[in-house]
């Protein structure tokens, strides 16, 4: 028999317990925890340079080392044995070079003009295969032409001089994410943001800049709305992201790349992907991705029959910035 008194007692105790638990419960916010590297999962051919919490890290299957400390950097690149990253502050950003021990060497591009009206942004540095010049985007032309959007520039590492190589239309949205073809130093791809003429919908196309002819031409159409391309080490394949019509996520595409442009595209997956990159080991790719409302982590995946398989996290802690690219270099045998 169930005792009435005991039952009432249980009811009251747990009713109150539920009420007070709710009143005491504090919200568990999704917070980033210290980054953890699972670098042993990297392909042995690959060295990855990335930034987390403003510091540059170098990862290989054997090692994970922190290069800089308290530097507040994003978008790292390697220059020979040295490193560089974008130092982004309120109102401006600069590109700063560090040696292999993390000591600051010099400022390659200074966006801090002291006066806010003259301050500049530098974004998306990408070093060419010959290691002699860096492609980047910046709004520095606004001081001369009034053009507010990011244009595409080259920084000559010997002379330190910059030159404009592609200009967007006024108020188009601008240029982003230059990518070199490591197999052909005359080919530079970039994203060009615009609006459709009639409905004023934003879109982006992948453009190709030919350093021989100094001409740019589109590789994709406005209806494709694609961005953040990456070329395979042999220059024969391309990955890129396509914005889905739901406005919520993107699709990851793999295609052939040649003088005929982009052909045979296949969709690998849809989700919250950013900055896909090829491994130097055939069949593997890397990308940034996030779970639900968490921040971003780096993943490796195998591509089998046009699908992502063996998805492996290389970092945990959700403290990579989705809008900060990383660089992959080949480890020489």
């Amino acid at each position: 028999m169930i005792k009435k008194r005991t039952f009432i007692l249980v009811a009251i105790v747990f009713l109150l317990l539920g009420y007070f638990t709710a009143s005491q419960h504090t919200q568990k916010k999704a917070q980033s925890s210290p980054i953890q590297f699972y670098n042993s999962q990297l392909e042995p051919t690959d060295n990855i340079i990335l930034t987390s919490s403003g510091n540059i890290y170098s990862l290989s299957a054997k090692n994970a080392s922190q290069i800089t400390k308290n530097t507040n950097l994003i978008e790292p690149i390697t220059i020979g044995n040295n490193f560089a990253g974008v130092y982004k502050q309120t109102n401006y950003s600069s590109l700063i070079e560090y040696d292999s021990s993390g000591k600051e060497i010099k400022t390659l591009f200074d966006g801090n003009a002291q006066k806010i009206d003259n301050m500049l942004w530098i974004t998306d540095p990408a070093i060419d295969p010959t290691q002699t010049q860096i492609a980047f985007v910046s709004d520095q032309n606004r001081l001369i032409t009034g053009l507010p959007d990011n244009a595409l520039f080259l920084l000559n590492l010997s002379s330190g001089k910059t030159s404009t190589i592609a200009l967007p239309d006024h108020y188009s949205g601008g240029i982003a994410h230059p990518v070199w073809d490591m197999a052909d130093p005359t080919v530079l791809l970039y994203d060009y943001y615009q609006y459709t003429p009639n409905t004023l919908e934003p879109y982006s196309t992948i453009m190709e800049y030919d350093t021989n002819t100094n001409n740019s031409f589109p590789l994709t159409s406005s209806s494709q709305n694609v961005f953040q391309s990456s070329l395979s080490p042999d220059g024969k394949h391309i990955m890129y992201l396509q914005r889905n019509s739901n406005g919520l996520d993107v699709s990851l595409y793999l295609a052939d790349f040649s003088n005929n442009g982009i052909t045979n595209p296949v969709k690998l997956a849809s989700g919250d992907y950013a900055y896909p990159e090829f491994s130097y080991t055939l069949g593997y790719i890397y990308y940034l991705s996030a779970d639900a409302n968490d921040g971003y982590n780096l993943f490796k995946s195998k591509v089998v029959k046009n699908k992502l398989t063996d998805v492996t996290p290389l970092t945990t802690g959700s403290n990579l910035q989705g809008n900060s690219s990383y660089e992959i270099n080949e480890i020489q045998p």
Binding site: M119, G173, F227, Q228
Partner: peptide
């Protein structure tokens, strides 16, 4: 007061 803003395109948190 004003400041300069630079939000890059693409997926981000």
């Amino acid at each position: 007061g004003i400041k300069r803003l630079d939000i890059q395109a693409g997926m981000q948190h």
